[in-house]
Design a protein around this nucleic acid. Structure first.
Lengths: 192, 192
DNA sequence: GAGTAATTAATAAATGTTCATTCTTTTTTT
DNA sequence: AAAAAAAGAATGAACATTTATTAATTACTC
């Protein structure tokens, strides 16, 4: 067992514990002591891997965001037509949110509460470029409405957070047809 | 000056301080000591008006949610056609979020972070009924898609939170046309 | 046995909450 | 209408815990 691997494992254990605690009771319930206990580690050990608590949370955010972005553009092929491309990315994101609902919940908490330093949050947005490019292409082809990417995101991607959190909390049912409906809404809103 | 009025004033000062602090740095920055100082009150005084910190935050949530709902259905007339009705409510909400951006920001923080007790959160949803009724009418008339109200909300109302927070943070410009575009997206997504 | 990883134990500061007490207002008695 | 009594509102200081963070010490690996 390589030393490096062990380090990574311990980091991941800390990430996992922090994520679970923050998801359950917010940042106020995620004390360093609890994180340490949940990761089977002494509190002092955390400071070997992270500068301080804020750094721990920031790094967790970047970590989760990276895995989100990776999923979003998994097997993405720019050569497909605009709608097909968008559909591909959209369902990738939906799949991520279903499969990693804890991570998804954490991300939307970060996007709406002042948990993460602003610079770090900006850093996490970088990976979205392919989607912005796609929208631009769609607009040039006259397929997608000529409006700010903020609006496009707000109406075609952002709603998934709400809908899928309802699903996860068992307030709202889920079926394959349900997901298709959701995509239809997303596409109807941004298509020209 | 009636005693009752003075009580209400003090409660409102506490609400205002709590809101500001939570908005700025999350619940962890809103200590009872800071809330008290900001409201020009002794920490012990808070416990005359509220059971404990959680109760303070819960009551604040209900208070803000009530004023939100009131705005949403301001001058709302059920006798108008479905689209006109929806437009009315939609712009009411938009106006609220612009005029009371602090309150709006707080609400979306509450909806995505475990700040508020679940029962209290449910209590805050009650006032949305007229909108649900409207959607039902629209569906009966074949104007609005036959899908779960969760999806309808996720795509026609929820996006405003994202878009208008971008506006407030000066990341995204705002114009009257911009708002009209946003409404167009909302309507396009749910209309049949 | 050198060097790093991890722990225990300790730090000061901050946390939510309560206490005994004072100040202010209202009610009762004269 | 004035004085006395009761009640209520507000306070600052103190409470025991908990907080994030470090210093000193031990365990482990190469």
């Amino acid at each position: 067992m390589a030393k490096l691997q062990k380090s990574i494992d311990k980091q991941n254990a800390l990430f996992k514990a922090t994520l679970a605690l923050i998801n359950n009771g917010g940042i106020q319930e995620a004390s360093m002591a609890k994180v340490a206990k949940m990761a089977n580690v002494s509190p002092a050990t955390i400071y070997i891997y992270f500068e301080n608590k804020q750094d721990l949370v920031n790094q967790l955010y970047l970590n989760v965001k990276a895995s989100f972005s990776k999923s979003a553009f998994d097997a993405y092929n720019e050569s497909l037509p605009v709608k097909k491309s968008f559909e591909h990315i959209w369902f990738n994101i939906a799949k991520f949110k279903m499969a990693y609902s804890q991570e998804a919940e954490f991300l939307s908490q970060c996007d709406n509460a002042p948990l993460i330093d602003l610079e770090i949050r900006k850093e996490g947005l970088v990976h979205l470029q392919p989607l912005l490019d796609l929208w631009k292409r769609g607009q040039e082809e006259g397929i997608i409405k000529e409006i700010s990417p903020f609006l496009l995101y707000a109406y075609s991607i952002y709603p998934m957070a709400f809908y899928l959190s309802s699903v996860v909390n068992d307030i709202c049912p889920l079926g394959d047809d349900m997901l298709k409906s959701a995509f239809q809404l997303a596409w109807d809103s941004i298509k020209v």
